[in-house]
Amino acid sequence: MERFELRFSGNAPLVGRAHVGVVASGDLEVLMEPANETVVSVRTSVDGFEKVWRATLERFFARHPVAARIEINDSGATPGVVSLRLAQALERTKA
């Protein structure tokens, strides 16, 4: 397991909070909450992929520059699954 924290410069406020996903093989859990600055805490079962996480998250925040506290508990999800879960969480914050 590896853990790291990544910071981004989002400023669009979130309406609510959302929880999606399960820490199951190839999947991840995302907790997304309103915050003043954008910090993503990642715990992942696969070591050595911080660069890929940064790139995946950069792409998400480029499209959705939200100010959010995000916690990710990952069990080996691919970048595609990570992107979908993030988009799903953001969608749920609006519900």
Partner: peptide
């Protein structure tokens, strides 16, 4: 006690296993 209450296992991370909220 939903995920945002963050009552997770205190033992898994110490054994290098990713916990769930």
């Amino acid at each position: 006690l939903g995920p945002f209450d963050r009552i997770e296992s205190p033992w898994l991370a110490r054994q290098n296993i990713v916990p769930q909220a």
